[in-house]
Write a protein that binds this DNA or RNA. Structure first.
Lengths: 140, 140
DNA sequence: CAAAAAATGCAATTTTGTTGCAACTAAACT
DNA sequence: AGTTTAGTTGCAACAAAATTGCATTTTTTG
């Protein structure tokens, strides 16, 4: 994606433009799948660990990235589709491949319906992680 | 739960009986909700941290506990209903209360249907975490 | 009860994430 | 453009979380 586009996205979310933010956002967009802190650390050795941590949390706070619950113990982040500093709103549907361990966000191709919760429980949000074998691992 | 019952459960999963395992399993059964490592550390100060870590992973490997994905960064474990060393099989439906932060396993009271996955994706398992307000927090 | 196998506790280490602060940089304002 | 300001970075130190190796103790087997 063009530099000017990236800049626009970051600005729209109320953040200043910096080299690190441009690089990280660009990588997320190009890579398409969810990334862990470790992935980014490996990819961007030139930036200090602290800077990467802070980039991730700034992006999360401002609605560019969302944290995906993962039982691997590594915080994993995915690009938000349409969030802002004010409100995160997803369907939070994710696919974790048990072969390649990659986590990806599945767009609107899945419908999930919840019939009922025990009484006096109020549902506000939902995370769904489907585990299995992804397209790529499946065809190899 | 009676000591002899606890012993039977642990044995059935191919593990030796030790004080720590009895205590931890007993606590999970009595407490009913999911627990983090920290919860257990606080509860069982007498046991070494390492022993508790190893108890949790032994229980996980042998199908007594399952790890629940959580974006808080703390590994959280819940009792398995009917798993063994050979196979974990749940519907993995969990409820996380945004007020009291407690995570609990909701049994079979929820139906979820998934319409479709993108082609060439194979679903094997699913984790669902519903976030909201639990019964207890709701009535206070 | 003895031997073998496994679990525990401790110390040391590694990994992961956070904080404070000085130096630097982007954006805003003459 | 140059100055101000507010936010960002990198470093070092720190804190927290998890893991490893090993000697000791405990459980199980026969």
């Amino acid at each position: 994606m063009k530099y000017s586009e990236l800049k626009k996205i970051i600005k729209r979310h109320g953040l200043r433009i910096t080299d690190c933010r441009i690089d990280v956002l660009s990588y997320f967009i190009q890579y398409k799948k969810a990334l862990t802190f470790k992935n980014l650390e490996d990819q961007f050795e030139a930036y200090d660990r602290v800077t990467l941590y802070r980039t991730l949390s700034a992006f999360e706070e401002h609605g560019l990235l969302h944290k995906i619950p993962d039982d691997s113990g590594f915080a994993t982040y995915g690009l938000c589709q349409d969030c802002s500093t004010e409100a995160h709103h997803h369907n939070h549907i994710h696919f974790k491949c048990l072969k390649c361990e990659q986590l990806e966000c599945i767009d609107d191709t899945i419908n999930i319906s919840i019939d009922s919760l025990p009484k006096n429980y109020i549902a506000q949000d939902m995370d769904v992680i489907i585990k299995g074998v992804c397209q790529q691992c499946n065809s190899n």
